[in-house]
Design a binder for these strands. Sequence first.
RNA 1: GGGCGCGUAGCUCAGUGGGAGAGCGCUCGCUUCACACGCGAGAGGUCGCAGGUUCGAAACCCGCCGCGCCCACCA
Length: 913
Amino acid sequence: MSAIETSTNVPERPTLAGLEAKWSAVWERDGAYRFDRSAPRERVFAIDTPPPTVSGSLHVGHVFSYTHTDAIARYQRMRGKEVFYPMGWDDNGLPTERRVQNHYGVRCDPSVAYDPDFAPPSEDGAGSESERGSDRPVAVSRPNFVELCLALTETDEQAFEALWRTLGLSVDWSTTYTTIGALAREISQRSFLGLLARKQAYQLEAPTLWDIDFQTAVAQAELEDRERPGAMHRVRFSIAGAQRDGAEALIETTRPELIAACVALLAHPDDERQRGLLGREAVTPLFGTRVPVLTHPLVDPEKGTGLVMVCTFGDLTDVVWWRELGLGVRSLLGADGRLLDVPWGQAGWESEDVARARAQYGELQGKTINQARRRMVELLEESGDLVGEPTPVTRAVKFFEKGERPVEIVTSRQWFIRTVEHRDALLARGRELDWHPPYMRARYEDWVNGLTGDWCISRQRFFGVPFPVWYPIDAAGTVLYDRPILAREDQLPVDPSTDVPDGYTPEQRGDQNGFIGDPDVMDTWATSSLTPQIAGRHLAGSAGPGDGGEGATSDEALSGPEPLFAKVFPMDLRPQAHDIIRTWLFTTILRSHLDHDELPWRNAAISGWVLDPDRKKMSKSKGNVVTPMHLLEEYGADAVRYWAANGRPGTDTAFDAQQMKVGRRLAVKLLNASKFALADLAPQGETLTHPLDRAVVGRLAAVVEDATSSFEEYDYARALQRAEEFFWWFCDYYLELVKGRRYDDAPQAAASVSRALRLSLSSFQRLFAPFLPFVCEEVWSWWQDGSVHRAPWPDAGELWGELEDRPGDGEIDRGGDGGSDGRVARVREDTALAVAADVLREVRKAKSQAQRPMRAPIARVVVHDTAERLSALQLGEDDLRQAGAIERIDTAVAEELSVEVELAEEPPDRPAG
RNA sequence: GGGCGCGUAGCUCAGUGGGAGAGCGCUCGCUUCACACGCGAGAGGUCGCAGGUUCGAAACCCGCCGCGCCCACCA
């Protein structure tokens, strides 16, 4: 018949060994996953892949979640979608910066000029003999520093790509991007300038979250709580002019070192106990500074004494009170976390006893926060202003997630993007988005509802996207921050520490009547929040001549009639883990909302975490570190993917090597079942004539339907489980039942089996293709042309169609069906398959209990069952007889199934040996 | 303090109104002509606790307990 039947090429001994290398080479050669930009928009399925951080190594958690995305990508591709599946590398940010500093022995200094011939002092961090004497890192310009970062991250990126290819991610490797590359810098800077023009970005000198070790501003989204021991101190403030009534104020604080920065005491407006103090002035202990006693509804009268000290700034609540009550500023904390010198007696630092204030403060000045706190407690004890003993407390303290000491609040000039005023719109965007699983939306809403201020995007760091901004310097040498000079769009990307603004010469940098570049870089999320635009190459209308930096990609996007961006944006899917909903997911929605007034994608698939089998952190203490590459080598990519794909969307999953073995078994089973089904396959018939063949195809159609609807809901795990469950049943029962008939002399009987086997095998190979891409490609190649990953996803409708043609030769006893209702006949056929399988199991049980081999002959079985089921069994009796080696089958009507089995006489003992 | 999720066999987990399931592990058996990287069979559970709705609850409702996570103005 067709060419397919003669061209099967089944190996003698199928094996999983080497499939990864074999097929990834073929996929690369054939461009199997290359995105076809000529596809119409409706056919495109675009994925906003999470760019992994390249300054570490990939771990099992990455393998886990990226496999989920790949399964969806492969499914959509088989559904006929043109899948846009790029890969990004997140090399922008602090982790890389730190590594480069250590690796090359350099530090970045934006005031240093770019040196095109720069060579790093050290390749391995140790430095040469002569340089080792001085451990001072070499100061290099920002562009030079960025070059070193790029050089160092490149080898990581190659290793990452190799791992992803081994894992079988169907990424289009011609569309990779980096978050520090020229493309990302250009897009990031352009978006920033647009926000600035539309007043959605602004610069402000304001209290800012600050990490005293990194000495940079950080954002609310980068904070985390850590439990830390502390102590509650009850402190006495005197009241100005209280000689008459002896009034005093008692406050409780965990931060006595900030008393000099106190600007007010607050009570709740309804708190009767404090009524007498309202409108009067309290006087700080030791320093003698007068501060007003005011009210604010946020004060909790139940806490402490009901009276609270406001400092500039002890925590975020202080900022709220300070802002809402219009209080003054007394800043005493430096950028390095030490107490500053402050001008006692001058404006803002008034004191009733300047000399005493100066002396007391002198004990604290220059100390770190902890040192100052200890000394302050001693001073308060000495002066008698500490009431009672400090009480130990454990409280949650805010830390920068990468930091080692609590964040402080320091006043500084920073860039912000407006978020708070868009709160309602952002909540609406969250409802517009399809979340998988849906309950993950709650985390987004919690976050948006909890926003306390606009997004601070400037960082006092070096390895990031610079602000495309300079500032003029006036004749007096003052930097005019309120008159920024903006880069032209066609200049982008710019580095203001090296590039020169229009109208100036390089020599004017830093001079009077000259200019200076903005020294800061953007928060890494300020660029990562644009991954849809970066991956989609959302550049301006005309090509920027200066942009040659993004690898081998030529900017077809700019010249083509239809830019890539129009084809892929808004994207279809954002896959990511739940821990970065408040950062990556939130900021991407924000930027898309502000720049495009729409969602960046239609669906968000949120994955869980990988946990150790004992529910603890993945540990290296068990001797051998489990790296992803080791897993892939030991179990095979398909097996590792199988484990990953069993983790349901959003659910944390235990790391379980046992599951990988199970996955490997499934892959091996696919090899062997395919080999069996294809070996000596008889010509197939035009229709399925045998009832059991029809029944199995009917069940298959139901499974295909189930898997398809699961995938449509992004529930890849369910799709896999349904296909897998049925596949094992198919192998254990159906294949055994038809084993004899496929070699039957009656051509029609064999032709029907042959057709059913083709339909089933083809369906199984495609159903598993998103999960086990290597073995499925292998078995597909034995008898089909082209890649299984470009083959159409199985169609339940087609399979149902196979059951519509009724066999016309009377082979099937239609009984009372009247032939008019195919559904009744199908139910009976399905029952036949069910009963045949049930009886086969009973027969196996009897043989197993008699400790006889499965091929041991059965003299007779008596099947007790309902009349309906016994009638249906007739349709499959011949197959059952062969599969069970049964000589005679009798039946008896009963309420439920039971089977009597008479084994044939045991053959005479063979001679030993 | 608020919210989300979870609690089912030794382990990992499916199951959401009507027979308590799968895989692994364990026990026993079988060299069966696709597969010993295999095949067959078996043992094993008061479905966290308590109440309610219902003819019927592992599932739906209320409360409680435990675990995990998110958020919070944590003085």
